Amino acid sequence: MSASAIDSGTVDEAPHGSGSQTFRRAFRDLKDGFGQRELWLSLGWQDIKQKYRRSVIGPFWITIATGVQASAIGLLYSALLDIPLREFLPYVTVGLIVWNVINASITEGSEVFISNEGLIKQLPSALSVHVYRLVWRQALLFAHNLIIYLILLVALGVWANLSWASLMAIPALALLGLNAVWVAIVFGIFATRYRDIGPILSSLTLLLFVLTPIMWTTQSLEAQGGQVAERAKIAEINPLFHYLDIVRAPMIGQPQEAYHWYIVLAITVVGWTVALLGMRKYRARVPYWV
């Protein structure tokens, strides 16, 4: 048993030791993991390179795939919903780009410790390193997809709709990353203990994709009036709608209500509370569960 492994508290720590079940150790894990950024920055970038090894254009296949998907959905649903393509395509494209981050945070987050079983058991590092690695990898993929957004800014004149309020996309993206961390921690811990949670989350995110205004708009439903307009309000119950809106609205120059931010901030506080409780009680048991 090495001294470094004992000090890290990730491999050799007794799962039922009272010293491991403290908030101090939970915060220390998060702090130590962030301090090992050379490790998770390198691993996250290596994940991208490994996936597209021997490919001519490499990770830009991600950009192409997202662009094709957004174009297909935009062309079809703009006709079905009778919304001008010039207005609807940026809405769909940015929605898909942000959704990819949200979806990966949930589905890949639930596998974050299981997929790193070898490293967790052999490498004396903080448990949060694997979470930061996941979030960093998604940030890289998001950056690649932003190329599509930049093209739309020029090609469709989206830049004309932007204002100083569009800078709110920056703190919104930071808040999205902060939430991705707690989501990966919470789902990662419990999906490691209960392996059925991963498949359940995959099915749930597929359902939420349909229920989240990505391929459709709440405005188009409200314009129809009657029961359809009332049902459009159901989207407000979906928490992912609010995460999507705080990023997408400023990026395409749409007006935004402040309550979206209030809801996201409230969920962030609750989520991090659950994450810290989970890290406090179960972080030392994860190496035994994987």
Score class of each variant (00 low, 15 high):
74 G>D: 04
57 I>Q: 04
104 A>E: 15
142 F>K: 04
53 R>W: 09
22 T>M: 02
229 A>F: 04
60 F>P: 03
180 A>M: 05
262 Y>V: 13
212 T>K: 00
251 M>P: 05
105 S>I: 06
197 I>Y: 03
206 L>N: 15
106 I>R: 00
85 L>A: 13
108 E>Q: 14
109 G>N: 14
205 T>C: 07
114 I>K: 14
45 W>M: 01
23 F>M: 14
274 V>T: 07
231 R>C: 08
26 A>H: 13
153 L>C: 01
153 L>G: 00
100 N>I: 05
118 G>F: 13
238 N>E: 00
40 W>K: 09
265 L>R: 11
209 F>Q: 01
284 A>S: 06
8 S>Y: 05
215 M>I: 04
178 L>F: 15
228 V>Q: 15
37 R>E: 03
266 A>Q: 08
287 P>E: 07
81 L>D: 11
84 P>M: 10
248 R>M: 09
66 T>Y: 05
278 G>Y: 03
77 Y>W: 13
242 H>R: 02
85 L>R: 14
148 I>L: 15
229 A>P: 05
235 A>M: 08
193 R>F: 07
248 R>K: 09
231 R>Y: 15
281 K>D: 11
140 L>Y: 11
166 S>G: 07
165 A>G: 01
99 W>Y: 12
210 V>S: 04
274 V>P: 04
224 Q>M: 13
191 A>C: 02
16 H>M: 10
186 V>H: 03
262 Y>Q: 14
53 R>Y: 12
169 A>L: 09
113 F>K: 05
262 Y>A: 12
216 W>E: 07
105 S>V: 08
49 K>E: 12
62 I>D: 02
132 Y>T: 09
81 L>Q: 15
53 R>A: 09
83 I>H: 07
26 A>V: 11
116 N>T: 12
176 L>H: 02
125 S>C: 11
238 N>F: 01
279 M>V: 13
125 S>E: 13
134 L>D: 15
56 V>F: 07
263 I>M: 14
95 G>V: 08
139 A>Y: 13
255 P>I: 11
48 I>R: 01
65 A>S: 02
23 F>V: 15
195 R>T: 03
31 K>A: 02
115 S>K: 13
236 E>R: 03
136 W>C: 07
